[in-house]
Design a protein around this nucleic acid. Structure first.
Length: 284
DNA sequence: CCAACCCCCTGAACGC
DNA sequence: TGCGTTCAGGGGGTTG
């Protein structure tokens, strides 16, 4: 499910509450979820470790441990991370449970639970200084809020490619964190037809894309803001920014800018919605 | 290098 | 009602 704004929201909700907690036990119910090392080894290495802080990189979450080992995870399509009192019933499709200690004694014991209906999500554990040849984080492109995200960067990276501009935005090794929803939203804001070949974009087009990427991702991240109580209450699935989508999932409805009908097409195998009038296939 | 497929999984929505 | 098909916001792998 989640793209950068959702992963960032998970990080913002959980990070302050996880800091300093000790992982006293780990239960892995579906061994395939731990991509590296194997489930048994994963549990052995994680047990007893203390969480220092949490980070997001692209759509990955990284739990930094005080030992400088780190737990890395990717939610993929339906993964969900919940910090919950240990006595609450488990969500369906709960595959990994981290028992935690260290919260104030007045509060009930906590668990960090990973549930994932489609089981595409993955966990990794990397020891301090262990080379990361497993997760793909090392190949990720720049963060969307990095000052390095300039029109020149995009043009240099994608300007000669024949693939569509939408596929370029989805390429995690160019800019990390954009998925199918926000690529549509970004291209709508930039006024660019999603199936346009990247090598047909002009300087001014890349300028609009470079501006729209951080602007839209910031906007949708802020719309997702949620208290940790509401986050838990909604099972981590209350993405409150969805009413603010301008085009995603709105094929056939009126364009929020010009009122003409939004159209749905397939680009790079992904469903894509755009406004034929606001996003011309060629610049005038 | 690239495009065009395949795979991983479950569940919701839709058509007949 | 039931059954089959299609689709879903993630990524990776193989083939030609």
């Amino acid at each position: 499910m989640p793209e950068l704004p959702e992963v960032e929201t998970v990080k913002r909700v959980l990070e302050p509450r996880l800091r300093g907690l000790t992982i006293t036990n780990v239960t892995v119910k579906r061994p395939e979820i731990t991509a590296y090392p194997n489930a048994e080894e994963f549990c052995r290495l994680v047990t007893g470790q203390i969480i220092s802080h949490m980070e997001r990189r692209g759509k990955f979450l990284i739990l930094h441990l005080r030992s400088h080992d780190r737990i890395i995870l990717h939610l993929r399509m339906t993964g969900c991370l919940l910090l919950t009192p240990a006595d609450l019933p488990e969500e369906a499709h709960t595959h990994i449970i981290f028992s935690l200690s260290g919260s104030p004694e007045s509060l009930p014991a906590l668990e960090l639970r990973f549930s994932d209906m489609r089981r595409f999500g993955r966990f990794w554990l990397l020891r301090e200084n262990e080379a990361d040849t497993y997760t793909g984080i090392g190949k990720l492109g720049i963060e969307p809020f990095d000052a390095a995200l300039t029109p020149a960067y995009l043009q240099a990276r994608f300007g000669k490619r024949r693939k569509t501009v939408k596929e370029c935005l989805l390429d995690q090794n160019g800019v990390a964190g954009i998925g199918n929803i926000y690529s549509d939203e970004i291209l709508f804001t930039a006024g660019i037809y999603p199936a346009r070949p990247a090598n047909s974009l002009k300087q001014e087009d890349w300028e609009r894309v470079a501006a729209a990427v951080p602007e839209r991702l910031t906007f949708f991240t802020e719309k997702n803001e949620i208290t940790s109580e509401d986050y838990l209450q909604s099972k981590g699935r209350n993405y409150r920014n969805t009413p603010f989508f301008q085009v995603y999932g709105r094929g056939g409805q009126p364009c929020p800018v010009c009122g003409n009908k939004l159209r749905r097409i397939v680009v790079g195998g992904r469903s894509s919605v755009y406004c034929p009038d606001c996003q011309k296939s060629e610049e005038a």
